[in-house]
Design a binder for these strands. Structure first.
Length: 281
DNA sequence: AAGTCGGGGAT
DNA sequence: ATCCCAGACTT
């Protein structure tokens, strides 16, 4: 796996030897539910503009939200700035070491704390993202896809296969994630390119049986509050403010929905009232 | 354990 | 149209 990564791994800027712990943390937050190709340009601009936690901490929040652009889930941008402020206030401006201290930061959950521990501090940590879960589900459990939510069995397996030696554990984490992203993909896995194709993979050995028919039942997007909230945020990013008229035009048929979304954005701190309209905080 | 929260490219 | 993406947080 580690040899495969050395040969096939992507050359991403947050993996360069000169990348700071903060820049790696920023990349991990941006990559939460957002593909690499879309994060790349935003991350480059972001790090050029706010290279250290103190820079982001003192930036106008409206500019932070604009720089976040269309990465999605803009609450992540808000939390990232809160994270920067917490690092400045509580950790002397340095990304803290240790999963417990990292998890106490806004927007840093189990996965990101482990990823920063491994990739920024080069300490041993059980990194379990969607890619690792899928690779382990196939190779170890013989299943086409991992369970819907993270289970204790998955944590146990991931801990079991993680190399003891810290440097190797970091390389392993990086390699398994990359394998899941490039080869052991959700849709059409490229088993012919996989170093684990064969006895090393239970799913491959079993003839790649299809996933059980579990209705994933993901929330639809068109017509939801999520979509309208996104449209409102897009409006606020490009124009300085949005009038009530402009907001209502986003969904002329449902004023209730517009008002509901407007109120929820204010409640989330993503927008502030501006007369009857809205503006960025 | 289930819901909510963006957005875009692939299928 | 549906799926999927280096998840976090609330209920």
């Amino acid at each position: 796996m580690i040899a495969w990564f050395a040969d096939a791994g992507r050359d991403l800027p947050w993996r360069s030897p000169g990348a700071s712990a903060w820049s790696i943390l920023v990349s991990e937050v941006m990559l939460q539910q957002t593909p690499v190709v879309r994060v790349l340009p935003r991350w480059l601009d972001w790090m050029d503009r706010w290279p250290a936690p103190a820079d982001l901490a003192s930036a106008p929040t409206a500019e932070v939200l604009r720089a976040w652009d269309r990465l999605g889930y803009p609450r992540r941008a808000l939390r990232l700035q809160q994270c920067a402020r917490a690092i400045v206030d509580e950790h002397d401006g340095e990304v803290p070491r240790g999963e417990e201290a990292l998890r106490a930061l806004p927007g840093i959950g189990e996965y990101t704390a482990a990823a920063v521990t491994a990739f920024a501090h080069h300490d041993r940590a059980v990194v379990l993202d969607t890619n690792v879960r899928r690779v382990l589900a196939r190779t170890m459990a013989g299943a086409a896809l991992p369970p819907r939510s993270l289970t204790v069995a998955e944590r146990r397996t991931a801990t079991q296969v993680l190399p003891e030696e810290p440097e190797r554990s970091v390389a392993w984490n990086q390699a398994v994630m990359e394998l899941g992203a490039l080869v052991c993909t959700a849709g059409a896995p490229r088993c012919e390119q996989c170093p684990l194709a064969g006895p090393a993979c239970a799913w491959y050995s079993a003839g790649r049986p299809p996933a059980a028919e579990g209705s994933r039942r993901v929330q639809a997007f068109a017509g939801t509050d999520r979509q309208l909230r996104g449209q409102i945020m897009a409006l606020l990013r490009t124009q300085d403010r949005a009038t009530e008229q402009a907001l209502l035009e986003l969904d002329p048929g449902d004023e209730q929905r517009v008002q509901r979304c407007r109120a929820s954005l204010v409640a989330d701190g993503l927008a502030v009232p501006d007369g009857a309209g809205l503006r960025l905080p």
